[in-house]
Simulated scan of single mutants.
Amino acid sequence: MADTFSTADVAKHNSADAGMYIIIEDGVYDVTKFVDEHPGGKKILARFAGKDATKQFWKYHNDGVLKKYSPKLKIGTVKEEAKL
Rank of each mutant, 00 (worst) to 15 (best):
A2S: 15
D3H: 09
D3A: 13
T4R: 10
T4W: 06
T4N: 08
F5Y: 08
S6G: 05
T7E: 00
D9Y: 01
V10K: 01
A11V: 12
K12V: 07
K12F: 04
H13I: 02
S15A: 14
S15I: 08
D17R: 14
D17G: 15
D17H: 14
A18E: 06
G19F: 06
G19P: 06
G19I: 07
M20G: 04
Y21L: 05
Y21M: 01
Y21I: 00
I23P: 03
I23F: 05
I24S: 01
I24H: 04
I24M: 04
E25P: 08
D26N: 14
G27I: 04
G27S: 13
G27K: 11
Y29W: 09
T32R: 09
T32V: 13
K33R: 11
K33V: 10
F34I: 08
V35G: 06
V35N: 07
E37S: 14
H38Q: 13
P39G: 14
G40L: 13
G40A: 15
G41S: 15
K42W: 00
K42Q: 11
K43E: 13
I44W: 11
I44H: 10
A46N: 07
R47Y: 15
R47S: 15
R47I: 12
R47L: 14
A49L: 02
A49T: 06
G50A: 07
G50P: 02
A53K: 00
A53P: 01
A53N: 00
A53Y: 01
A53V: 01
T54C: 07
T54H: 06
K55F: 00
K55A: 04
F57Q: 04
F57L: 05
F57R: 02
K59S: 10
K59F: 10
K59N: 13
Y60D: 15
H61N: 12
H61W: 06
N62Y: 11
D63I: 06
D63A: 15
G64T: 12
G64M: 10
G64I: 09
G64S: 15
V65G: 03
V65C: 06
V65E: 03
V65S: 09
L66Y: 04
L66T: 03
L66W: 01
K67I: 07
K67Q: 12
K67T: 11
K68F: 08
K68R: 12
S70E: 13
S70F: 08
S70Y: 10
S70L: 10
S70T: 11
P71E: 07
P71W: 06
K72R: 14
K72G: 11
K74H: 13
I75T: 04
G76H: 08
T77A: 09
T77D: 07
V78Y: 00
K79W: 02
E80K: 06
E80C: 05
E80D: 07
E81F: 00
L84V: 14
